[in-house]
């Protein structure tokens, strides 16, 4: 409203707003001041008042009928239904949010190596260690082919858990052969336990097998087992803390540390001629393999490098 007292005439919209009291106090005052001095605007305002009163009369002629009670009841029932639906929706929404969160977490988690490995392990376990083709493809898609190898290696593993129980310097040819020859029921390979490494097979190319321990250890032992097996293998069976088991054309290198406490089981096929063992900077000890040494076991402590005092003489 831009009109001031005594200025130009008021517009129709101004008059209506004045008539309907839709202006603020200052606007009403200015309008009133103008109307007191302007007969033309006052006449138009009076005209609108009459038209407004007539319009009210005319509109009142239209029936002020009450709604059909049935329609009221239907409308109220619709309100109740809507209220019920509305109360149900938050629960559904909550479940959908939870599901979405899980999917998001899994999706994000699948981008990480540990999550992929976890899923792959689960798939392999669900397949009883021998997953089907679809499961294999899934594991491969996850880039976790090594999970597929574990069961195969586990089947070739020669009783790793039984040997360390022989204790240090067990008598060769006594308890171990009996345990080794005992028929065992077919077992599903157990997953590696904490402190136990994955088994690794290796095939030295030459006639001898070299076993090198880079360091003496705070505790732990290595059990060397000569058996009729196709391939050499090694596994840390207790106290494993990520010592590296590196296999090569000569044999095995155990990259252990002075603080290591792991126990190892190393199985060597009988077809090799010698086992060459060296711990830290100690002398290399050579053990000859003969037919009489099938199923023979030696356990050597790794706390010092003086192997020649631990190993039995070559000819008992």
């Amino acid at each position: 409203m831009s009109v001031t007292a005594g200025s130009r005439h008021l517009g129709d919209d101004d008059l209506i707003r004045y008539m309907d009291h839709q202006l603020d106090r200052e606007g009403q005052r200015l309008m009133g001041a103008h109307l007191r001095t302007c007969a033309g605007c006052t006449a138009r305002l009076e005209g609108f008042r009459q038209k407004s009163a007539l319009a009210k009369e005319w509109l009142d002629l239209l029936p002020a009928e009450m709604p059909d009670p049935n329609k009221r009841a239907v409308a109220l029932a619709a309100l109740d239904r809507t209220r019920f639906r509305r109360r149900s929706v938050p629960m559904a929404t909550a479940w959908m949010k939870a599901a979405a969160a899980v999917i998001l977490l899994v999706s994000v988690g699948m981008a990480t190596e540990p999550m992929r490995a976890f899923v792959a392990r689960g798939v392999v376990r669900l397949g009883g260690g021998e997953p089907g083709s679809a499961a294999r493809r899934l594991v491969e898609w996850l880039g976790q082919e090594r999970q597929l190898q574990k069961p195969e290696l586990a089947r070739a593993r020669p009783l790793p858990a039984a040997v360390p129980e022989l204790g240090p310097a067990a008598e060769p040819g006594a308890a171990a052969p009996a345990a080794a020859t005992r028929p065992r029921p077919a077992e599903r390979p157990a997953p590696p336990k904490r402190g136990v490494s994955a088994p690794i097979t290796f095939t030295p190319a030459g006639p001898d097998v070299s076993l090198v321990f880079n360091s003496v250890q705070a505790a732990g032992s290595a059990t060397i087992w000569i058996r009729e097996v196709p391939r050499a293998n090694v596994q840390a069976v207790r106290g494993y803390r990520n010592e590296e088991l590196v296999t090569g054309a000569d044999g095995l290198e155990v990259r252990n540390r002075p603080g290591s406490r792991a126990d190892y089981v190393i199985t060597i096929p009988t077809r090799y001629r010698y086992i060459l063992v060296k711990v830290a900077d100690g002398p290399e000890v050579r053990i000859g393999i003969t037919k009489s040494k099938r199923e023979w076991v030696w356990t050597i402590g790794l706390q010092n490098s003086a192997l020649d005092q631990q190993l039995p003489s070559e000819e008992p």
């Binding site: 129709d12 919209d13 008059l15 707003r17 407004s52």
Partner: peptide, 13 residues
């Protein structure tokens, strides 16, 4: 709105 009301009143009248 004031303009529309004025127009409506005029038309109806």
């Amino acid at each position: 709105v004031g303009t529309m009301i004025a127009r409506a009143l005029n038309k109806l009248a």
